[in-house]
């Protein structure tokens, strides 16, 4: 299948979105303690919606187009259609059995390969990803794509202050451990968007209708541009999951404070007696710290 047409002017932006199970509805089997995925609805990874909204804002301001890109099983088409309904212009699904079992290294390989193909005619200016996903939750795929494509890497971005298309310059606010860095960098870049940085728009009726009819670009590994399938999926993944198990229960029972027939003040004292009996040093340290 051909690559979607790219704009001749304005920004060429790609947002990577992942389809994930809706965690709010995940249930754990009470007996086997395993996750029950059957029948769990899927959603766009919630963190990716902040990236999508920011991408669409830039497009609305500077012109250009927003393409959403997803690697996943054929049913991930749902996530892409939802993104179109929210206002994305084009959607690309890369789907292939040989992508199954990808860890983050293999995932960033597949996505970076597809991004190269997408930028063949008109280079991609900005790649957006979410901060992390709610299932794998590694936050490694964004930096992985940036390294592979040698894009300037801007992670944990809370706001884009300015964008100068002529100079290809961008100024962003990046969340660091004890503060915020204001960074000036250049396009092309990869931005991982922080949660809470904006609010996803409601799609227009026109977008919803378009999304339902739209023809998605669907690529196999070869069509996406993969030359060496050994770099995909399980075979291309250096990490190996050796064991999955349930956390063990604590042996001792909680020591219960009896409350029957006690006044609140007595309950307070009873709890404190137990706390200080268990942690004798705490009483001295607290008194010293507070007096």
């Amino acid at each position: 299948m051909d690559a979607p047409e790219t704009p001749t002017d304005g920004l060429n932006i790609v947002v990577c979105i992942k389809q994930v199970p809706d965690s709010a509805q995940i249930r754990v089997h009470p007996v086997t303690n395993t996750i029950m995925r059957q029948g769990v609805p899927t959603i766009i990874n919630p963190y990716d919606l902040f990236a999508l909204e920011e991408a669409m804002r830039l497009r609305d301001q500077y012109g250009g187009q927003v393409t959403v890109l997803c690697m996943g099983p054929p049913m991930a088409e749902d996530a892409l259609r939802r993104a179109l309904g929210l206002g994305a212009d084009k959607a690309v699904l890369i789907t292939d059995r040989r992508f199954a079992g990808s860890d983050t290294l293999a995932t960033s390989f597949a996505l970076a390969t597809a991004l190269t193909r997408l930028g063949a005619d008109h280079p991609v200016d900005i790649v957006f990803t979410g901060k992390q996903t709610i299932d794998g939750d590694t936050a490694q795929v964004g930096p992985g794509i940036a390294s592979r494509l040698e894009l300037n890497q801007l992670t944990y971005v809370s706001a884009i202050d300015t964008l100068d298309q002529g100079k290809g310059e961008i100024v962003v606010r990046r969340r660091a451990e004890g503060g915020v860095q204001v960074l000036k960098s250049k396009l092309p870049c990869l931005i991982t968007m922080l949660e809470g940085s904006n609010e996803i728009r409601r799609g227009s009726v026109a977008d919803m209708l378009r999304a339902a009819r739209a023809e998605l670009t669907v690529w196999s590994a070869e069509e996406a541009g993969v030359e060496d399938v050994m770099m995909c999926g399980l075979r291309g993944s250096p990490t190996v999951v050796k064991r999955v198990f349930a956390p063990s229960a604590r042996d001792e029972q909680a020591e219960m404070v009896t409350v029957e027939g006690k006044q609140p003040a007595q309950i307070g004292d009873a709890i404190i007696d137990l706390i200080f009996a268990a942690q004798p040093k705490l009483e001295a340290d607290l008194s010293a710290a507070l007096n």
């Binding site: 860890d103 983050t104 290294l105 960033s108 794998g136 939750d137 590694t138 936050a139 490694q140 795929v141 964004g142 930096p143 992985g144 940036a146 390294s147 592979r148 890497q153 992670t155 944990y156 969340r175 660091a176 451990e177 993944s237 250096p238 990490t239 190996v240």
Partner: peptide, 23 residues
Amino acid sequence: ATTLGRDLAGSVATTLKTGLTAD
């Protein structure tokens, strides 16, 4: 696994083409 460590680890592991276990 801080904002700095995650930013750096993802790049280094990809550049070295090795495995990285998160968190």
